[in-house]
Amino acid sequence: MRRYITQRLLSAVIVLFGVSILVFMVLHLTPGDPVEIMLGPTARPGDIERLRAELGLTDPLPVQYVRWVSRALQGDLGRSIQLNRPVLPELLSRFQATLILAVAAAIIAFSLGLLLGVISAVNHNKLVDRVVAGFAMLAVSMPAFWVGMIGIVVFAVNLRWLPASGMYPPQGAPSWGKLLVHLIMPATTLALVPMAVIARFTRSQMLEVLGQEFVLTARAKGVPRARVIVDHAFGNTLVALITLLGLEAGILLAGAVYVETVFAWPGIGSLMVEAILKRDFPIVQGGVLVIATSYVLINLLTDLLHAAADPRIRVT
């Protein structure tokens, strides 16, 4: 177990190193002079020179990289050109909003996905199974940004049940209740695809487990069918499901970009889209770094959780 953990930590560090190089290179991949692009066509030559020196763009690349990384490690991701503020605090406050949205969506996706998957597997090849399969297929085929807009038309505009956008109402003090009401639509929209993925995975995993000999052994012992499903099949399915956590986190973080745009949710995804359109490179760079780092950490956690839940990994 200890060896497994060290191994995983080490590979996470290596991946993060690769990520940092890639993110660093993004700025330098840009065709044309990033400084000129940032400042726009009206910039004066003096300003360009000053910003270039300020950003250290005149130094050799490795020097720039080391400086950038060591600053990043100290929490200094530069200043936003547009906002003229340090990048990190801005990113973190936006990231918090994204996390709230993603966690809410994950709760919906896992609870409903598991339920649908188990129902499907237990009713293998019956009508319910087909309906769930069709629904899952439809869910993964619907772009979140479109579903979100339909939701706004139906539930915000026509029925007036839910707010159309934002995290809180424009006026008044923020409260948990207001947050919850604002969360319902974006979180459900974001949950749709991961829910379908979980339902399908749960179904196939559950069917595989139900076909294994130990399930038959349990039945031969006289354990009632429902208890076999709960005590034997579901546990094994859940452990397998842990491996899906990382993938799900990826789907959620990615989908957040669109859902946040549609619902004007003040998250890191919508921040980055704005930043790209406004050529605010430090924000983009920092945002990519923050999300990628947390994604790597989530994957690391997933593996450790899996190791903790599965005795076969635990001892080795």
Binding site: V19, V26, T30, V257, Y258, A275, Y295
Partner: peptide, 23 residues
């Protein structure tokens, strides 16, 4: 290992990073 690095990004995020570089 290179693929691992690519996979370290939630996929849309990598696309966004690349679009931001390319315009």
């Amino acid at each position: 290992r290179l693929i691992d690095v690519l996979l370290a990004f939630p996929y849309v995020l990598l696309a966004i990073a690349l679009v931001s570089a390319l315009g």
